[in-house]
Design a protein around this nucleic acid. Sequence first.
DNA 1: AATGGTTCCGGTAACGATACCGGCAACGCT
DNA 2: AGCGTTGCCGGTATCGTTACCGGAACCATT
Lengths: 345, 345
Amino acid sequence: MIKPATIKDIARKLNISISTVSRAMRNAPDVNADTKRAVMALSEELNYQPNKLALSLKQKQTHNIGVIVPNLDYVLSTMVKGIDEVALEAGYTVMVCQSNESFGREIVNTRRLLDSLVDGFIISVSSETKVFDHFKKIQEKQMPMVVFDRVTPYLKAPGVRIDNEDGGFQATEHLIEQGYKRIAILAGPKNLGISNQRLDGYLKALKKYRIKPDEDLIINCDFNQQYAYIATQELLNMKKRPDAIFTISDRMAIGAMLAIKEKGLRMPQDIGLVGFNNEPVVSLVTPGISSVDQPAFELGKVAAKLFIETVHNNGDMSEVEEILKPKLIIRESSLRIQPKNGRIK
Amino acid sequence: MIKPATIKDIARKLNISISTVSRAMRNAPDVNADTKRAVMALSEELNYQPNKLALSLKQKQTHNIGVIVPNLDYVLSTMVKGIDEVALEAGYTVMVCQSNESFGREIVNTRRLLDSLVDGFIISVSSETKVFDHFKKIQEKQMPMVVFDRVTPYLKAPGVRIDNEDGGFQATEHLIEQGYKRIAILAGPKNLGISNQRLDGYLKALKKYRIKPDEDLIINCDFNQQYAYIATQELLNMKKRPDAIFTISDRMAIGAMLAIKEKGLRMPQDIGLVGFNNEPVVSLVTPGISSVDQPAFELGKVAAKLFIETVHNNGDMSEVEEILKPKLIIRESSLRIQPKNGRIK
DNA sequence: AATGGTTCCGGTAACGATACCGGCAACGCT
DNA sequence: AGCGTTGCCGGTATCGTTACCGGAACCATT
C-alpha cells in the first residue's frame, strides 16, 4: 500500500508549519491568502486526502452510522436505501450489518460497531431477540440510537414504524366486508411488536363486527414461508376450516398460497387471502394477493432524519415515535364481491 | 456520550505504566503474571474496550472491507451474505454501500470508503459504469481489490463470477431441444460483461445447432422489468414473432411474462421463456419460469476468500479468476416436450 | 517612543494505542 | 568480585490531525 500524502508532507515541502497547513486546509480566516493558495495547489498535486481515522480519533466522532437489520429482503433493503439517502446528504456513511435473524450475530455485529466505529445506531431487531442487553450498552454509552420498523417497548429509544394495528385492521375489515366468516391469522413470533400490533388490528376489526375471535384461528408461527405453509395445511385440515387467512407478511402469504393451491381450493371463492408488505411478488402470482403496503423508503428516510435530530438536539427524544400509515392494496385473492357504487374503495 | 475507559485510566489506577498495560492486554510474555491479572481484572471492571480508531491509525489497517454493490436484490444480497460469513470469520467487518446502479453514487461511495475507512474493496460494478477511474484509484493506492459477479475486463483485478457463457448456452440449448425455432434474447446493457457473456452462450448454442442468428431477435435493453416488458411487446408485434425468449435476468423474465400474458399467448405452448438467477419468484408465478441458477452464497464466500488471499499473499493476483458453474432449472414456462427415457436431465 | 490592534504563523499537547529502546534488579556462573 | 543473563517494567516517539496558546511583525495611534 502506497503511503498517501499527509499534512506533514505539505508542510515540509512548503517550509511552513503543520498548523498553518491544517488551518489553510480548513479555510480558516487567519491564514494569508497566498499561503492558502500554495497549500491548496500542493495538496491538489499530491492528491491529499485527510485521514479520516486521525480525524475521528481526534474529534471523537466518526460520521458513520451503524445500521443493524435482521436481513436484506425487499422491504428492509428499501428502508436501508431510504436511510442511505438521508444519511449521505447529512455527511454520514452507513455501515449495514445483517444479523440473519440471529441473536448471536446481532450481538457480534453490535459489539464490533460499538468499538468506536460508529457514532450511533439505527436498528431493526432480529426476530430471535428477546434480550436487549447488547442494545442497552449503546444507550449506556449515551450514543444516539433509533429503532425502526421492528420497534420494541423493551427499548426506550426514538423510533419510526408503521401503524401496524391499522394495517391489521384494514386487512381484516376488508375480508369481513367481502363476506368471509371464519378469518384466520398467521401472526409472527410472539415477542415481536409488529406481530402483536397486527394481531391487535385483527382483533379490533373482529370486535367492530361483533365476531367472536376463535383461538384456533390465531396462529403464532415463525416469520417464514415454510412455517406458514405448514401452519396453513393444519388450518385447512381442521373440521371447521377458515374461509380466509390474513398473514402478517407476504413471505407467509406465499407459503399459505402454496398450501391452499395444493389443497385444491380456489381463491377468492373458497378462501380469501391477504398479506402484508406489498412486495412485488404478490402482484405476480396468480391470483394476485391483496397486501398491506407500507411506505418503506419513506420510513427509512424518517429513521435517518430522527437519528440526525437526536445527534443535534441531544435532548431526550426517547418518547418520540413516528408512525406512518399503511394502505391495503386489494387484488384478486380476496375480492369476491365486485365493487359497485363505490362501496369498496 | 460517556467517556469509555482507556489504557491510561487503567495504568493510572494501578500505578503502572501505559506500556505495561498495553503489553498485559495483549498477553505479551514479558509481563508478570500478577500484573497481568490485575490489569485484566480492572479492565473487566471498567469494561475496557480497545479503541479501534487508535489501533487502525497506528497500524495502518482497519480490518474493514468495503463492499460496493449496485443494489441489494435477491442475488446480490445473498452474495453479500456469503461475503459477510467469510469476512467475519477472518476478523473483518464489511461496510456495504449500494450505488443504486448509479455511476455518480458509485464514485461518492468509493471515495468515502477510500479515506482510510477500509483496507480494501470487494466490488460489483453498476450497470451505468463505463469509466473505471474511481476504481483505478484503489489500485493506485495498491489496496487489495476483488471484483465479483459483474466482472469487467477494464479492471485488472482478481475476481469471481459464474460461467455466464455456459449459463446462456444451457438456457438456449434447452429451448432448442424443446423444439423452439425463433429464439429471442433480451440481453442487458452492452457495457456489462455478464450481458455479453450470456449472449455469447446464446450464440454458441445457436451455432451448435446450425441456427442462423437473427439480429432482430437480439435486444439490448436495460436491466429492469419495465424495459423488458416493452421490449417483449415489440418482439411479439413483429411480423415473424419469436416463439421463445431467453432473458438474462429474472426481473426481465417477469417483464416478459407480463407482456406475453397480456398478449394472450400461452407458455410453453405458444412461446417459451427462460430467465436467469433462479430467484424465488420464478417458482411462484404461473407457469413457473425456467431459470439458470447461480450459486450466489458460494460466490460471495469465494469473493471474500480471494480478498483475504490477496491481503496475505500480496503477490500479484490480478490474473486469478474463479469461475463457478450455473445450472439451469427447468420449469413449465419452457417445457413442452414431456421428458421420457431421460433425454432431458 | 511607547502602546495597542491586526494579521499571520509556529510550537506543543492531545486523541488512544503500540513499538522500540533501554534500565534496573535479581540471579547464577565463573 | 565481576560478569552476563533473564524477567519485568518505564519512557518516549509515533500514527495524522486539530485546538489552543503565544509570539513576531507590521501599521497606526497617542
